[in-house]
């Protein structure tokens, strides 16, 4: 049985978050902006939303792209989503001696 539900966008899930999606790499979601897309992900994959948001904002070290654009340059959670857009979630690759 596929966990995918009907939606207007596909969302690519990084390895570390696939336990929430039963190891599905691409899932469907719906919404007209990033906020509602994340809400729809949380509804279908409980716990996933919390890994993306902190205090109602995108987590600093989670990158989200709509097509080729980092949403931070498109209004973050208010970034508009159109039918057929592709959303990609990638954890930042970061660290340091600090």
């Amino acid at each position: 049985m596929s966990l995918n539900v009907a939606g207007n966008v596909e969302v690519r899930i990084p390895t570390i978050l696939r336990p929430y999606t039963k190891n599905e790499k691409v899932v469907s979601a719906s919404g007209s902006d990033l906020q509602s897309v994340i809400a729809s992900l949380e509804l279908n994959f409980p716990g996933l939303g919390e890994r993306l948001l902190e205090n109602g904002q995108l987590r600093r070290f989670i990158n989200v792209y709509i097509n080729d654009e980092d949403v931070r340059f498109m209004g973050a959670l208010e970034a508009p989503i159109k039918e057929g857009d592709s959303v990609t979630i990638l954890p930042a690759v970061a660290g340091g001696s600090m």
Binding site: N63, R72, L90, A92, V93, A94, G96, S97, M98
Partner: peptide, 16 residues
């Protein structure tokens, strides 16, 4: 992209 002696981060576009 952090250009720092104590931190590193891949640029967001490079990462994608």
């Amino acid at each position: 992209s952090a250009h720092s002696p104590t931190f590193y981060e891949f640029d967001s576009k490079d990462l994608l």
